Amino acid sequence: MPTDASLLIVEDEPKIARLMSDYLQTHGFDVTTLDDGNAVMPWLEEQQPALMLLDLMLPGQDGLTLCRSIRERYPQIAIIMVTAKVEEVDRLLGLELGADDYICKPFSPREVVARVKAVLRRSQAAEGALAPTDDPAAPVHLNEDGWQAMADGQDLGLTAVEFQLLRVMMRAPGRIFSREQLMDHMYRDNRIVSERTVDSHVKKLRKKINEALPDREIIRSVYGVGYKYQPDE
């Protein structure tokens, strides 16, 4: 993984922003900081980082609203939510909106660096042990370099988590993945994630595919077991 990856920190507490920025810079990252939610989208129109550390509570637009907007317009950007609210509903909501991970305050700078590296590794790593996804007859085609999924000539506009979920299933057509197995493939840092989060991601993924391929059901649910990619039925 390159150590000069560009990062954006959106944090309105100067001491926390400076602490994260200084520590990440010492580990080779190119870091920009913003302290107002309203400044984020205009900044992203000019440049896109590999990853954002996005605080939940911000002046202007809050972190969850921003997360939703960023996922719609810039699905390739990895997002780590930073929050002092430890309620599981906030964590779950953030992930369902497309965040790749979360960090709870207070945290250690070493934890931040470890989480950033883990998320970037997941975003950039190929699943070498699974079958390739470049079958010319497949109804959906993946551009893994650009994290882009196409169906019937249309860009599905997947979030990073949705792309990872689809990629895992596409590399083993017909295999039934339990929710736990999908979580293991999607989140390699052993974080605690509700099975309902996986269901939410699958629901959104299937909706996007159905909009492009209304006559095909290629992601199927297996009652009581999980999900499978089955394009040839």
Score class of each variant (00 low, 15 high):
19 L>V: 10
204 K>G: 06
52 M>Y: 02
207 K>W: 09
3 T>K: 13
216 R>M: 12
216 R>E: 11
233 E>A: 14
32 T>D: 09
42 P>G: 11
125 A>Q: 14
32 T>V: 14
91 R>M: 13
86 V>R: 15
68 R>N: 10
97 L>H: 01
51 L>C: 07
104 C>F: 00
228 K>L: 15
95 L>D: 07
12 D>W: 03
121 R>A: 09
232 D>F: 14
136 P>C: 08
34 L>K: 13
187 Y>H: 13
7 L>N: 06
189 D>H: 13
124 Q>T: 14
56 L>H: 15
162 E>A: 11
194 S>Q: 13
66 L>E: 00
40 V>M: 05
177 F>I: 03
36 D>N: 14
10 V>Q: 09
117 K>V: 10
159 T>W: 01
75 P>C: 09
159 T>C: 02
214 P>F: 00
108 S>R: 11
74 Y>D: 06
162 E>G: 14
200 S>D: 12
14 P>N: 01
90 D>N: 13
215 D>R: 13
88 E>M: 14
89 V>R: 13
157 G>I: 06
148 Q>D: 02
20 M>Q: 12
176 I>N: 05
84 A>E: 09
67 C>H: 03
64 L>A: 05
127 E>N: 10
3 T>P: 03
131 A>P: 02
98 G>A: 00
184 D>C: 02
60 G>H: 02
71 R>T: 15
181 Q>H: 05
49 P>D: 06
145 D>N: 12
159 T>L: 00
105 K>H: 04
154 Q>Y: 00
126 A>N: 08
31 V>G: 03
65 T>K: 11
40 V>L: 00
80 I>G: 10
49 P>C: 06
58 L>V: 08
75 P>Q: 08
200 S>P: 07
224 G>P: 07
23 Y>D: 07
163 F>Y: 15
153 G>L: 00
73 R>K: 15
138 A>G: 01
148 Q>W: 04
35 D>E: 13
116 V>G: 07
8 L>N: 09
89 V>S: 13
230 Q>G: 05
119 V>L: 10
19 L>S: 08
100 D>S: 11
205 L>F: 10
214 P>Y: 04
51 L>Y: 03
164 Q>R: 14
186 M>R: 09
38 N>Y: 01
219 I>R: 02
192 I>P: 04
82 V>G: 07
216 R>V: 07
